[in-house]
Structure formats: structure tokens, C-alpha cells
């Protein structure tokens, strides 16, 4: 067991790979419980007046599609069910293709019409300036949609000038964009903001939810699975729960084995004093 201390890291990598791939190939079918952060968004959208305007910012790039695409799809399904008017946009150049494809796909499934039920505003550089500017006037940031048509020519944009006229702002991101949306769109202009964030970034959103700056948030693939459970439409989130569960169990098992190895080494009196450096244990 003492040998665990100097374990080759590639063994752990192989273990992680198998613990993800095998459940994807042979699903187990775990179901997940819904947390309050996710339930709050669902409830908010349910209580929004029908055909409310919703701004959805796809602030992510291809790297994080595994976690964020299922969330975006679940949000869109629910919003279209509620007949909301969805305005898609992105603050990252790499988000254009992703947002466009997902909006088209979900709108087609729900039978929504471009310009009447949804539209795509496109990409705008410099996120914070855009967020602040849209608090004054959306058309000043996006005079036209992605395809060059003036915003005021769309029936769904009638009466939509700024956050004031929107029922909800949704941000999907793997960076600090959610905090910025909360600080600028909510704190400054009073918009209701909901978030879908990668699991790594979701941990920092708890204070924002507690303080009411965020309606709620979806954290990682589990957040997507929870939302899919609420709207009763299984998707990639629920499908990914098996892989996530098994890989978590594998990591916990490795942590336990590592500690057994550590205890064994210590018991034999071979453990050296801490060097303050973190390099040695995994080869």
C-alpha cells in the first residue's frame, strides 16, 4: 500500500477514462434530485407572464459544450413551452456557431418562428460595455440581428427596449460572465438574471443566489440533468449522470487508497516532514 504514494499519474488517467466511457456505452440510468438553485429558475420561468421577452447570452465556446449545451437546450425547451420571446446573443466570438445551431435546432423542434418567437442578435465584443449599454437600449448594441435585419422590424421586439422590458436574462458561461451579468444587469438595471455555469465556476455563485442577485443557477452537467428532470424532457444532462457518478466514485476510491498508502507509510515511520512543495507524491 505504501507504493500508492508514488503512483504513476497515467494509471489515474486511464481509470478516469474508463469510468467515463464505460457508463456512456452501457448506461445505468441514475436519476438525480433537484436543488433549490435549479428549482428557483424553473419556478420563475413558470410564473413569468406568457410571451415575456428573455435575453439568452451564450457566453461560452466549444470547449465547454459538454456541460453548457445541455443546459442551454433545456432552458430553450422550457422557454418555448412558455411561449417566451427569446433573444439569443453571445459575448464570445466562438459562441456564434454554437448559439445559432442550438437556437435553430430547439426552435425547429418547438415549431417557433424566427422574428416572432426568437431571434439571434449575434456577437458583440467587450462584454461589460455591452451589458451596461443594453440596460439603456438593446438596439444601440445590436442595431440589427446577426443577418443584418433592423431589430425594430421584428414583431417580437415591439415594446422591448432594455432589461426593463425583459422577463429574464440568462447567461451560460464558463468564466466570470455570470457575476458580471449579476453586477451590471441586475444590480444596476434591476434585471432578473439566471445562470448556467460549468461545475468549476458554479461554486462561486452561491453568495449571489443567496443575496438575490441571481434568480438561480445550474451548476455543471448535474444542473442540466436537474433542469431536464423538472421539465420532464431527458437529454444529455441526464444521460451524462451515469458517467459523472462512476467517475466521482473512482476519484473517491483513489483518494481513499491514497490515504491508506499515506497512513501505511507514516505508520512505518518513513514519512518525511512536509517540504511545503507539492510536487512529489504523484510521479
Amino acid at each position: 500500500m505504501a507504493g500508492m504514494k508514488g503512483l504513476d499519474r497515467t494509471i489515474i488517467y486511464w481509470g478516469v477514462a474508463f469510468s467515463i466511457v464505460i457508463p456512456l456505452l452501457w448506461p445505468i440510468g441514475f436519476s438525480t434530485e433537484v436543488t433549490s438553485q435549479v428549482r428557483d429558475i424553473h419556478r420563475f420561468i413558470e410564473q413569468m407572464p406568457e410571451s415575456s421577452a428573455v435575453l439568452m447570452s451564450f457566453d461560452y465556446e466549444p470547449a465547454t459544450i459538454a456541460e453548457l449545451d445541455p443546459m442551454a437546450a433545456a432552458f430553450l425547451k422550457h422557454l418555448f413551452q412558455r411561449r417566451a420571446r427569446v433573444m439569443g446573443m453571445t459575448l464570445l466570438p466562438g459562441g456564434v456557431g454554437l448559439a445559432e445551431n442550438l437556437l435553430r435546432q430547439e426552435a425547429a423542434i418547438a415549431g417557433m418562428e424566427y422574428g416572432r418567437n426568437w431571434l439571434f442578435l449575434g456577437y458583440i465584443p467587450d462584454g461589460t460595455a455591452a451589458m451596461l449599454r443594453m440596460g439603456e437600449d438593446v438596439a444601440m448594441v445590436f442595431p440589427t440581428d446577426q443577418y443584418g435585419t433592423a431589430l425594430d422590424s421584428f414583431p417580437m421586439m415591439r415594446g422591448v427596449k432594455s432589461y426593463r422590458n425583459m422577463g429574464l436574462v440568462i447567461c451560460l458561461s464558463s468564466t466570470a460572465m455570470p457575476q458580471l451579468w449579476a453586477q451590471y444587469a441586475h444590480d444596476r438595471y434591476g434585471a432578473a438574471v439566471a445562470v448556467g455555469a460549468t461545475a468549476v465556476e458554479a461554486v462561486r455563485l452561491y453568495p449571489y443566489h443567496d443575496s438575490g442577485q441571481l434568480v438561480g443557477f445550474l451548476g455543471g452537467l448535474k444542473g442540466a440533468a436537474e433542469y431536464e428532470t423538472l421539465i420532464q424532457t431527458p437529454g444529455d444532462g441526464i444521460r451524462g449522470m451515469d458517467a459523472q457518478t462512476i467517475s466521482h466514485l473512482f476519484i473517491v476510491m483513489m483518494v481513499v487508497l491514497g490515504n491508506i498508502g499515506y497512513a501505511a507509510t507514516k505508520w512505518r515511520g518513513r514519512a518525511g516532514a512536509s517540504t511545503g512543495r507539492n510536487h512529489a507524491p504523484v510521479a
Partner: peptide, 13 residues
């Protein structure tokens, strides 16, 4: 404006 059933606010600017 045309109002929808369920609307409850409007900002006139």
C-alpha cells in the same frame, strides 16, 4: 401598445 393577458407592467419612455 397591445397588451397580452398576464402582462402587468409597461415602461413608457
Amino acid at each position: 401598445a397591445d397588451l397580452a393577458f398576464g402582462d402587468s407592467t409597461f415602461f413608457d419612455e
